[in-house]
Write a protein that binds this DNA or RNA. Structure first.
Ligand SMILES: [Zn+2]
Ligand SMILES: [Zn+2]
Ligand SMILES: [Zn+2]
Ligand SMILES: [Zn+2]
Lengths: 137, 137
DNA sequence: CTTGAAGCTATAGTTGCTAGAGACATTAGG
DNA sequence: CCTAATGTCTCTAGCAACTATAGCTTCAAG
């Protein structure tokens, strides 16, 4: 039996975050000590490890809840898990593409040197005026 | 004189967002009609255009507020503007790098095929266990 | 002068936590 | 066994940058 602090140390998830995950329904409410403190078993530890890794990979709380519920029955087909992963990967790729467009514009803006006063600052002009941009973003 | 709705249409910023920007101190509170409705002039329109483009480039409200205040005096040196832009570009580059690491892992996970049941799903296993990952993320 | 669209304020919800307050529980040392 | 230090409890509020709703007032066209 682990206290919430021990679980926090072992998983690297902060104590309030663990309570938050419980509130969000990602973990089953654990048993309690005589004094009403949470006591976790190995299953709880494992579950939190899963959540930690899934969050580190960028999955949302909702996706994680779905994955957990469909992982309950080992006999079920896992298509939905693949679907969630693919959907998330697509989302990440979109984000990357958008950020790369921003990065290109920002690099261009960064490299435009000027006389050094606000009045004719190329950086400020470029931030103001999208028509100076080379692409959409 | 433009109403808030006209400004919204011209800038592509939603009406509640314009009011929010006013509350955040990004735009000077505009004059009001006899019936207490906001009335904007060209300066207000231009300011909102600046905010819109800066937000589209990913700058935070705080950065934008700083840029606006330092752009007030045309005679001042613009070093700080360059600094803010560079700082933001660096931040975007960091984000891209992190997302690319995630993307690599997710692609690997996506491409791992399996028998199709939850019990031995490679996707679920990979999401659970970081030791199956090829890199940090 | 009426009516429907647009505007007003204030409040709450979104996401994924994080930080505090104030009270109670546990544990290690003496 | 007692005490002090640390840990844990619940509840509430805050972050960023909006978005949505409710209930009301104002505007502009016909
Ligand atoms: Zn400059
Ligand atoms: Zn642009
Ligand atoms: Zn599978
Ligand atoms: Zn991993």
């Amino acid at each position: 039996m682990y206290s919430i602090g021990q679980i926090a140390r072992r998983t690297g998830i902060k104590v309030p975050t663990i309570r938050y995950y419980e509130q969000m329904g990602l973990i089953d409410p654990p048993g309690r000590s005589a004094g009403n403190q949470r006591r976790y078993d190995e299953a709880g530890l494992e579950r939190l490890g899963f959540i930690r890794h899934a969050r580190a990979l960028g999955l949302s709380i909702d996706m994680i809840r779905d994955l957990i519920s469909l992982a309950q029955d080992k006999e079920m087909p896992c298509d939905r898990a693949h679907e969630i992963a693919a959907q998330h990967a697509a989302h990440i790729r979109q984000k990357i593409a958008r950020l790369q467009r921003l990065e290109a514009e920002l690099t261009r803006i960064e490299n435009s040197h000027d006389s050094g006063t606000v009045g004719d600052c190329h950086v400020l002009a470029a931030l103001t005026d999208h028509s100076l941009c080379m692409s959409e973003h």
